[in-house]
Amino acid sequence: MTDRVLPTPTPETRHYWEGAKAGELRLQRCDKCSQAYFPPRPFCPECGSRDVSVFKASGKGTLHSYIINELGAPGLKPPFAVAIVQLEEGPRLLSNILECDQTPEALQLDMPLEVVFEKVTDDITLPQFRPAKEA
């Protein structure tokens, strides 16, 4: 059990959460204008087309912005970073930064990040990010 706030997937977002459970970061891309987008929805927010496909993202991104939460949140002990990750494919999403000191010195803007998967319950796995390992 966890006190963590957990998502309740909807028909439109299930592929994203199923992907996380399978160890894949899944995004969607428009078949017409080739725009990659997030959050999940069965049409392209750029051109309105319903012809869209789910694909496995590279899992690579950069640290776009963040705060260090000193107040705490359900199931999370402060201090911890809440970060906006800029994905290589274009979309941005929220994440914590794992395997890293939660300090301004360690958290440098634009540092390369990579996806890892944090299993929280049998049903829910969260895509998370950590500093990218040297290639």
């Binding site: 912005s65 939460n69 107040l71 949140a73 911890f80 809440v82 906006i84 929220l94 803007l109 829910i124």
Partner: peptide, 25 residues
């Protein structure tokens, strides 16, 4: 819905932990 599914699990809660997010950028 966006918030409930894709943001709250990462520990954003009251406004000081949300509204402030773009400022480092």
């Amino acid at each position: 819905q966006f918030d409930a599914q894709f943001e709250a699990p990462f520990g954003v809660s009251i406004p000081p932990t949300r509204f402030t997010l773009p400022v480092m950028r």
